[in-house]
Deep mutational scan, measured.
Amino acid sequence: ELVLALYDYQEKSPREVTMKKGDILTLLNSTNKDWWKVEVNDRQGFVPASYVKKLD
């Protein structure tokens, strides 16, 4: 499943990933309501769920 980055996000820990507004990311896990695991540029990590939106 793919998600769209709604905002820029700068990683604050090694478990997170940086994304730019408009990026298309692969959603790996959305079981946590606050932090979703995504893959971007061959890196996996977490981003705030409120910063991304699922693409239909």
Score class of each variant (00 low, 15 high):
residue 13 S to Q: 08
residue 34 D to H: 15
residue 2 L to A: 07
residue 44 Q to T: 11
residue 1 E to H: 13
residue 51 Y to S: 09
residue 36 W to R: 01
residue 25 L to N: 00
residue 50 S to Q: 11
residue 38 V to E: 00
residue 3 V to Q: 02
residue 33 K to R: 14
residue 11 E to K: 14
residue 10 Q to L: 13
residue 36 W to Q: 01
residue 49 A to W: 03
residue 5 A to P: 00
residue 4 L to Q: 12
residue 21 K to P: 03
residue 48 P to G: 01
residue 56 D to P: 14
residue 55 L to Y: 09
residue 36 W to G: 01
residue 3 V to D: 00
residue 12 K to N: 10
residue 7 Y to R: 15
residue 13 S to H: 12
residue 45 G to H: 02
residue 18 T to W: 05
residue 12 K to T: 12
residue 28 L to N: 03
residue 14 P to L: 10
residue 32 N to T: 06
residue 26 T to W: 14
residue 20 K to E: 06
residue 54 K to F: 10
residue 19 M to F: 10
residue 31 T to A: 12
residue 13 S to T: 12
residue 31 T to W: 10
residue 34 D to Y: 15
residue 16 E to N: 06
residue 25 L to C: 11
residue 20 K to N: 08
residue 38 V to G: 01
residue 54 K to T: 08
residue 38 V to Y: 01
residue 24 I to G: 00
residue 9 Y to T: 00
residue 20 K to G: 04
residue 55 L to W: 08
residue 14 P to S: 12
residue 32 N to C: 10
residue 18 T to S: 15
residue 5 A to D: 01
residue 22 G to V: 01
residue 40 V to K: 15
residue 49 A to V: 05
residue 53 K to W: 10
residue 9 Y to N: 01
residue 55 L to H: 06
residue 50 S to K: 14
residue 46 F to M: 08
residue 31 T to E: 14
residue 24 I to H: 05
residue 35 W to E: 04
residue 8 D to W: 04
residue 32 N to S: 10
residue 46 F to V: 07
residue 7 Y to K: 14
residue 47 V to F: 00
residue 32 N to D: 14
residue 13 S to V: 05
residue 46 F to C: 12
residue 10 Q to R: 12
residue 16 E to G: 13
residue 13 S to I: 05
residue 47 V to N: 00
residue 55 L to C: 12
residue 49 A to Q: 06
residue 37 K to A: 08
residue 24 I to K: 06
residue 44 Q to K: 09
residue 55 L to A: 05
residue 37 K to L: 15
residue 10 Q to E: 15
residue 33 K to I: 11
residue 30 S to M: 09
residue 5 A to Y: 01
residue 46 F to W: 15
residue 33 K to G: 10
residue 55 L to P: 04
residue 52 V to Q: 00
residue 22 G to Q: 03
residue 31 T to R: 10
residue 38 V to H: 00
residue 55 L to T: 06
residue 20 K to F: 12
residue 52 V to I: 08
residue 52 V to N: 00
residue 49 A to P: 05
residue 12 K to F: 06
residue 4 L to F: 09
residue 26 T to G: 09
residue 12 K to C: 11
residue 37 K to H: 11
residue 38 V to Q: 00
residue 53 K to V: 15
residue 3 V to M: 07
residue 9 Y to R: 02
residue 20 K to T: 09
residue 27 L to P: 00
residue 13 S to R: 08
residue 18 T to K: 04
residue 1 E to P: 13
residue 28 L to C: 07
residue 5 A to Q: 01
residue 22 G to H: 05
residue 29 N to W: 08
residue 42 D to R: 11
residue 15 R to I: 12
residue 27 L to T: 02
residue 49 A to R: 11
residue 6 L to D: 01
residue 50 S to Y: 09
residue 39 E to S: 13
residue 38 V to S: 01
residue 10 Q to M: 12
residue 47 V to A: 03
residue 26 T to P: 15
residue 52 V to P: 01
residue 56 D to H: 13
residue 25 L to R: 01
residue 40 V to P: 00
residue 38 V to T: 00
residue 28 L to M: 08
residue 34 D to N: 14
residue 40 V to A: 15
residue 25 L to F: 07
residue 48 P to R: 04
residue 21 K to G: 05
residue 25 L to W: 03
residue 21 K to H: 06
residue 48 P to C: 04
residue 51 Y to I: 06
residue 47 V to D: 02
residue 2 L to K: 15
residue 19 M to N: 00
residue 14 P to V: 10
residue 16 E to I: 04
residue 55 L to Q: 05
residue 2 L to W: 14
residue 14 P to W: 10
residue 7 Y to D: 07
residue 44 Q to S: 12
residue 20 K to W: 11
residue 12 K to E: 08
residue 45 G to Q: 01
residue 15 R to T: 11
residue 9 Y to L: 01
residue 46 F to E: 04
residue 11 E to H: 09
residue 50 S to D: 08
residue 19 M to C: 06
residue 24 I to V: 11
residue 44 Q to F: 07
residue 7 Y to C: 14
residue 8 D to L: 02
residue 42 D to N: 15
residue 27 L to E: 00
residue 2 L to G: 03
residue 45 G to N: 00
residue 24 I to S: 03
residue 13 S to M: 08
residue 21 K to S: 08
residue 3 V to S: 04
residue 32 N to G: 10
residue 12 K to R: 14
residue 16 E to C: 07
residue 31 T to M: 10
residue 43 R to Y: 04
residue 30 S to Y: 08
residue 26 T to Y: 13
residue 32 N to A: 09
residue 44 Q to R: 11
residue 5 A to W: 01
residue 11 E to F: 06
residue 15 R to F: 12
residue 25 L to Y: 11
residue 41 N to M: 13
residue 25 L to Q: 00
residue 54 K to Q: 08
residue 6 L to P: 00
residue 40 V to W: 08
residue 31 T to Q: 13
residue 13 S to A: 09
residue 2 L to E: 06
residue 29 N to M: 09
residue 37 K to Q: 12
residue 51 Y to D: 03
residue 15 R to H: 13
residue 23 D to C: 08
residue 5 A to I: 02
residue 19 M to P: 01
residue 37 K to E: 13
residue 9 Y to H: 04
residue 27 L to K: 02
residue 7 Y to Q: 11
residue 30 S to P: 06
residue 21 K to I: 06
residue 48 P to N: 02
residue 21 K to V: 08
residue 36 W to I: 05
residue 39 E to W: 10
residue 22 G to W: 07
residue 56 D to F: 13
residue 44 Q to E: 10
residue 56 D to N: 14
residue 50 S to G: 11
residue 40 V to D: 10
residue 16 E to R: 05
residue 23 D to E: 13
residue 34 D to C: 15
residue 31 T to D: 15
residue 23 D to S: 09
residue 4 L to C: 10
residue 48 P to W: 03
residue 15 R to K: 11
residue 15 R to W: 15
residue 1 E to A: 13
residue 37 K to C: 13
residue 28 L to I: 14
residue 4 L to W: 08
residue 23 D to P: 01
residue 2 L to S: 08
residue 16 E to W: 04
residue 31 T to N: 12
residue 4 L to K: 08
residue 29 N to L: 09
residue 1 E to T: 14
residue 49 A to Y: 03
residue 55 L to D: 04
residue 46 F to I: 07
residue 3 V to G: 14
residue 34 D to M: 14
residue 1 E to M: 14
residue 41 N to A: 13
residue 26 T to A: 12
residue 37 K to Y: 15
residue 47 V to Y: 00
residue 42 D to L: 10
residue 11 E to P: 15
residue 33 K to A: 13
residue 12 K to G: 08
residue 45 G to F: 09
residue 30 S to G: 12
residue 16 E to L: 05
residue 15 R to S: 12
residue 13 S to N: 12
residue 30 S to K: 08
residue 7 Y to V: 08
residue 16 E to A: 07
residue 18 T to P: 07
residue 44 Q to G: 07
residue 21 K to M: 08
residue 54 K to E: 06
residue 22 G to R: 03
residue 26 T to M: 14
residue 33 K to N: 12
residue 36 W to M: 04
residue 13 S to E: 09
residue 7 Y to L: 10
residue 14 P to R: 09
residue 12 K to V: 08
residue 15 R to D: 13
residue 10 Q to G: 08
residue 48 P to D: 02
residue 35 W to M: 06
residue 49 A to M: 05
residue 49 A to F: 03
residue 52 V to E: 01
residue 29 N to A: 09
residue 38 V to F: 01
residue 7 Y to P: 00
residue 39 E to R: 13
residue 44 Q to M: 11
residue 8 D to Y: 04
residue 46 F to N: 04
residue 17 V to M: 13
residue 9 Y to E: 00
residue 38 V to M: 02
residue 13 S to D: 11
residue 33 K to P: 14
residue 10 Q to K: 13
residue 18 T to E: 04
residue 11 E to D: 05
residue 45 G to D: 01
residue 35 W to P: 01
residue 43 R to W: 05
residue 46 F to H: 05
residue 30 S to C: 11
residue 28 L to Y: 04
residue 35 W to H: 03
residue 8 D to R: 03
residue 52 V to G: 01
residue 28 L to E: 01
residue 22 G to M: 03
residue 29 N to E: 15
residue 30 S to E: 13
residue 14 P to C: 11
residue 21 K to D: 02
residue 16 E to T: 08
residue 13 S to G: 13
residue 15 R to V: 10
residue 44 Q to P: 05
residue 22 G to Y: 05
residue 2 L to Q: 10
residue 56 D to W: 11
residue 29 N to K: 07
residue 53 K to R: 13
residue 17 V to P: 01
residue 43 R to G: 04
residue 21 K to L: 05
residue 20 K to L: 08
residue 44 Q to V: 14
residue 8 D to T: 06
residue 8 D to M: 03
residue 12 K to L: 09
residue 7 Y to N: 08
residue 17 V to C: 10
residue 1 E to S: 13
residue 43 R to L: 06
residue 27 L to G: 00
residue 3 V to Y: 13
residue 24 I to R: 06
residue 39 E to K: 12
residue 44 Q to I: 14
residue 14 P to Q: 10
residue 47 V to L: 02
residue 21 K to Y: 04
residue 25 L to K: 00
residue 22 G to A: 03
residue 50 S to P: 07
residue 56 D to Y: 13
residue 39 E to A: 13
residue 2 L to V: 09
residue 28 L to D: 01
residue 1 E to V: 14
residue 50 S to T: 10
residue 56 D to R: 12
residue 46 F to D: 04
residue 40 V to I: 15
